[in-house]
């Protein structure tokens, strides 16, 4: 089970997109480095370094999927929940950079979007989802585990969304955005199930032995941590069903005829109002918009999911900064 959005090679997206994503990544990683230093103080180097080695090793964790096939962990959301979003983003970035430079895994000119999709979006976006979901769940160990599962699943889906949006701007081949979006997000909604389950159980194991090491659970006291019953099995099965339905709906895009969505859009008058897009012709890659059956709808969906992912990443960044400021340094 290979994850297509990850470790992209040179030339997969056009040069302009590579440069822009590179600049975005550079700025965010600059902020994250400063945050990590503030959060971990003089422990930053050994702790971030050795946990980065853990994430590198965790990506070698092959877990069973079905009938003996295996998948492996990406670890962005897991790192963010265990160590905080900024440290998480930094260490996954380092893993991605070392994989490109020392293991020839992922193109050097693709580092900008590979870092954005594998490190920044999963760590900050995943952490934002984790925080939001935790508000809906009880403040118990079970709540943390459940929120981790959903956040880790969402982090993989968000990475796929991010890649699709980048394709919209920098497609290097004549494949319509709808097809890429549908296939990418659909496949990753399935792959994400494994990521979610493994991440959740791993955080559960850490909570059981050293709960003080789970950054995302530091607000819980011992009594709350002792309560773990959220009905894991029901939760896992429910979550899987939701993910499957999501994957099925999204992959309709790949087929190129999202009838249901189109009808909704027509009913709301959304299509007419979005019809003029001369600007779109200028910024979007020709390839990505050619051959889409209903361009306005597709771009509308791209705009909405792109905005949602961006907002989540921004929220994660904001949480990272705020929590570092307010946290008692002695407790870290």
């Amino acid at each position: 089970m290979t994850v297509i959005a990850m470790h992209a090679p040179d030339g997969f997206l056009e040069a302009g997109t590579a440069v822009v994503t590179g600049l975005i990544s550079l700025v965010v990683i600059g902020v994250a480095l400063r945050q990590s230093r503030e959060q971990l103080k003089d422990k930053a180097i050994p702790l971030a370094g050795i946990t980065a080695a853990f994430i590198f090793a965790a990506q070698m964790f092959n877990f069973p999927v079905a009938a003996g096939t295996t998948g492996h962990l990406l670890g962005g959301a897991l790192a963010a929940i265990l160590l905080g979003p900024s440290v998480g983003a930094i260490i996954v970035t380092i893993v991605v950079v070392v994989q490109a430079l020392a293991f020839a895994d992922g193109g050097l000119t693709a580092l900008g979007y590979n870092i954005l999709n594998m490190a920044i979006v999963p760590a900050y976006g995943g952490y934002a989802v984790f925080r939001l979901i935790r508000r809906m769940f009880p403040s118990t160990a079970g709540g943390v585990v459940g929120a981790t599962g959903i956040a880790a699943w969402a982090s993989v889906v968000m990475a796929a969304v991010a890649f699709s949006i980048q394709w919209l701007f920098g497609a290097s081949a004549p494949v319509a955005f709808d097809t890429v979006f549908g296939a990418m997000v659909g496949v990753h909604a399935l792959i994400g199930i494994g990521e979610g389950i493994i991440s959740a159980l791993a955080v559960g194991a850490v909570l059981a032995s050293r709960s003080d090491l789970v950054y995302g659970a530091q607000d819980l006291d011992t009594a709350q941590l002792a309560e773990s019953k959220v009905g894991t099995r029901t939760f896992v099965i429910g979550g899987m069903l939701v993910a499957l339905v999501f994957a099925a709906v999204v992959s309709q895009f790949a087929v190129g005829n999202p009838d249901g969505l189109e009808k909704v859009a027509e009913d709301r008058g959304f299509i007419d109002s979005a019809e003029e897009h001369s600007l779109g012709d200028f910024i979007f890659a020709d390839y990505a918009t050619d051959g889409i059956s209903n361009e306005a709808l597709s771009l509308g969906v791209a705009g909405i999911v792109g905005t949602v992912v961006t907002l989540l990443v921004a929220y994660g960044l904001f949480m990272g900064v705020r929590e570092t400021r307010t946290r008692d340094p002695a407790s870290v």
């Binding site: 370094g49 050795i50 965790a58 265990l82 791993a202 194991a205």
Partner: peptide, 19 residues
């Protein structure tokens, strides 16, 4: 997959403590 995930958690704790 639970034992694998638990060992991932244990490995994290060991890594952190080594740090």
């Amino acid at each position: 997959a639970r034992p694998i995930a638990s060992s991932a958690g244990a490995l994290f704790v060991r890594s952190y403590e080594r740090g």
